[in-house]
Design a protein around this nucleic acid. Sequence first.
DNA 1: CATGAATGAGCTTTCATTCAT
DNA 2: AATGAATGAAAGCTCATTCAT
Lengths: 219, 219, 219, 219
Amino acid sequence: MAEDAQRSGERAKRLPRAVREKQILDAAVAVFAQHGYHSASMDEISETAGVSKPMIYSYLGAKEDLFTHCIRRESGRLLEAVQAGIKVDVPPDMQLWHGLRAFYRFVAEHRESWTVLHRHALTVGGPFAGEVNALRGRAIDLVAQLVVSQGSRKGLGEQAEFSGKGLAAALVGAAESLADWWLDNSDVPDGVLASWLMNLIWLGFNDLVEGDVWRPRES
Amino acid sequence: MAEDAQRSGERAKRLPRAVREKQILDAAVAVFAQHGYHSASMDEISETAGVSKPMIYSYLGAKEDLFTHCIRRESGRLLEAVQAGIKVDVPPDMQLWHGLRAFYRFVAEHRESWTVLHRHALTVGGPFAGEVNALRGRAIDLVAQLVVSQGSRKGLGEQAEFSGKGLAAALVGAAESLADWWLDNSDVPDGVLASWLMNLIWLGFNDLVEGDVWRPRES
Amino acid sequence: MAEDAQRSGERAKRLPRAVREKQILDAAVAVFAQHGYHSASMDEISETAGVSKPMIYSYLGAKEDLFTHCIRRESGRLLEAVQAGIKVDVPPDMQLWHGLRAFYRFVAEHRESWTVLHRHALTVGGPFAGEVNALRGRAIDLVAQLVVSQGSRKGLGEQAEFSGKGLAAALVGAAESLADWWLDNSDVPDGVLASWLMNLIWLGFNDLVEGDVWRPRES
Amino acid sequence: MAEDAQRSGERAKRLPRAVREKQILDAAVAVFAQHGYHSASMDEISETAGVSKPMIYSYLGAKEDLFTHCIRRESGRLLEAVQAGIKVDVPPDMQLWHGLRAFYRFVAEHRESWTVLHRHALTVGGPFAGEVNALRGRAIDLVAQLVVSQGSRKGLGEQAEFSGKGLAAALVGAAESLADWWLDNSDVPDGVLASWLMNLIWLGFNDLVEGDVWRPRES
DNA sequence: CATGAATGAGCTTTCATTCAT
DNA sequence: AATGAATGAAAGCTCATTCAT
C-alpha cells in the first residue's frame, strides 16, 4: 500500500505520470508475487496501488502488458545488480564468486522481484517465459564462458562428461534453486550461500571431503 | 429400446469406481500439465476423461482436491521410480549415480507428471507446494545423508563452507533445473545428463579441467 | 417476459435445450428491437428470457453470435412469409401485389422482427449487414426479374432511363420505407399500403392523376 | 520560456470559439459516420478534432448533445442544398427533378453527413430520430404538396388508392434507399439516378414498358 | 482558455459448482 | 450410477464524464 496510498474513497491527488507508473508497477509486483499471475486480480492491484483501474489500463495496458512490464523492470534490475557486482580482470572463480554474492544480495533485498521472476513468470504460458529465459540465457552464457575458457586452457574437448552449456545450465539452476530454498531458510547469510555453491562447483564433493576448501582471495 | 440397457444418447458404461478414478486422474494430469492449475478448466478435464463433471466431483472432490490427488499420485510414482533405481550397498557416489539416472528416466517417460509436479504445483499458492516440497525434502535428506556421511568420515564439522542440507538443496536444485532444461533440449541421452551432474558435483570444475573425470564403475 | 418466465430468484425448471433456445431467441429479438444492438445488454436479455446468462453463452454463444442467430431466424421467417404469399402463374403485377401484401402482413404481425432486421442489423458494423443485405438482394433480384421480363417484352434496351436493378432497388427501398413509416402510422390497413405502392409503381403519378387506377383482379 | 506564451508541450492555440466548434463538429461527424453513435468514442472524436475532451464538453455538451448538434448541422445543410436546387415557377415534375438532383449531389459530396443522418441517427433510440424525422417530414410534405396539387386538379378525392402523404412517404423512402444503394454502387452519375426515380414515379412501369419515357425539358 | 489526470459504473464473458432427472 | 441443465459470483476491460492545475 505504498505509504498509505490515498485514503480510500477520496479522489487521488494529481501526480505526474511517471510517479503513478511506479506506484502501479510496485503494487503489481507485490500482488503478482503473492498470488501468481492468474490469481492476481486487477482490482487488488489497483487498490494496492491506491489508483483506479482505468489508470492502470491507460498507463500500462491490459493485464498481460502489465505483467510484461513488471518482468522487464525486475529482470533489468536483477541484471544490473549482478553486473555491478562482478569485477573484471580477476580470475574466473573470483568473478563467479562476486556474481553469486551480488545475486543473493539482490534476492535478499528484493524477494518479491525474485518471486515474480522465478516462481511465476516461468510457469505462465505465453510470451512471459521468453523474457525470463532470455535473462537466464544470458546468465548461462556468462557462466559457460567462464567454464569453457577454463576447460579449453586445459585442452578439454567435446566429451560426454564436459559440456559448457549443460554444466552452466546446471550451475545456474543450482543457484536459482538455492535462492528459492533460501526464501524459506533465511537465517543463512548470503556470503555463506555463495560460499557453498563455490565449493560445490569448483571443488566438488570429493575434494571438499578431503578438507580441501575454496576461499575467496583478496577482493 | 427397453431391454437394450446401454442406450439413450451416449450414457457411459457403468464401470467400477477404480477405473473411473484412473480415467479422471489421467485426464487431469494431462490437462493440468498443459495449461497449469488455474487455466485448466474442469470442463476440459471432464471432456478429456470422457466423464461428466458431476462424476469428478463425486469421486475426487473439487478442483483443489483433484489437483492434490494428481500431485500425490505422481509424486508417489516418481519416488517409487527413483527408489527402485537406487542400489544399496554400493558406494555413495554410485548410489547418487543410479538415483540420478532413475530420475531422468522417469522424467523422460512421464513428462506430464514432471511438468505438473515441478512447473505447476510449486507456483500455485495453497497446500500444493507443501506436498511437493515434502517430496523434495525427502530427496534433499537422502542426498544430504550421503554427503554428510562422506563429510563426517573425514572429520568435517559445521563450517561455513560445508552444510549437508544446503549442499544437498543445491544439488537437488541443479538436478531439477537440468531436468527442466532437458524438456526443451531433449536430444541429450539421460546417461549423459546424469554424467554431467556427477562430474560437476563430485569433482567440481577444478578437477574437471585437470582432465580428472568421474566415471561409473561396475554397476 | 414470455408467459411470466420463471418467478425470479427460483432455480429454473429443467427444460429441453430446444425450448430454452427459443425462449432466449424470443427475448433477444425483443430486447434488440427495443434498444438496438449496442445498447441491449445481455443482462436484460437473460432477465427477459427468464434464464441465466451462462445458459445464453452456452447455447447461443457470445453477443455477436446471438444477434446473428436472431437475424437468421427472423430473415428466414420473413422470406418464408413472403414466398408463401406469392402465387406463381399469375401476371407479374399480381405477383408483386401478393408479395407486397404478404410483406406488410408480416411486418404488422412481427413488428419486432422487422425492427431488428431493418433498423438495427443494417447499422451495426460487422457481418450483420451482410446477412440482411443478402435477403434484401434476393428481394431486389426477384423484383428486377419481374421488371426486366416486362421491359424486354417490349424491346427496351439498356437505356439510362431503364435499369432493372436500379429500379428494383428503388422499389424495394420504397416498400421498406413505407413499412417503417407504417410503424408510426399504423391506422392504415395493409391492403391499402400495398395498393399505394402498386399504383405508384405500376402507373406512376401521371396516370394516377388522370384517374387511371390499378386494381387487383381475380385472386 | 516565460514570455513565449504558446509553449509547454502541445497546448493548442487559443482560437475563437466558433472555430473550435467547427473543428469538433467536423471530427464528430466523421467519427459518428464511421462507427455509429454507440461505438464512436469521445476519445477518438477528441483526437480527431485535435482538441481535448473537456473542451468538447464545455462547448458542445455531453455525447448526446454533441450528436444532436451534428444532426442539426447536417440536416440543415441538406435542407439548404435541396432548397437551393429547386426552382419555383416551373411545373411540378421539374421541381421534383431538380430537388432530386440536388439531393443526390449533396449525398455524393457529403457522404459522411448522409451516413450519419440516414444510417445512424434513425436507429439510436432517444430524441435523435425525432430530429431526422422532422426533416424527413418536411421532405414528405413538400412532395405531398406537389402530388396533391396535381391530384386535386383532376378531382381525385380521398380514395384508398390515393393518399398524398402515403405516396410521398413512399417516394421519399425510395429516394433515400436509392441513395443508400448508391453509396455502394457509386459508378452511376447522379443525373441517371434522378432520372430513374422520375420515370418510376411519374410514369410507372406500365408506361415505361410502353416506351413512354419522362425527360427533363428546358432547365 | 485548455488539458492531463482521475474515476464510477457498467458491460461481456467465464468458471467452479450443484440440482433434478 | 450418471448426466444435461442451470447458476452465483467474479474477473477483465472500456467509456463517458469531471476535477485540479
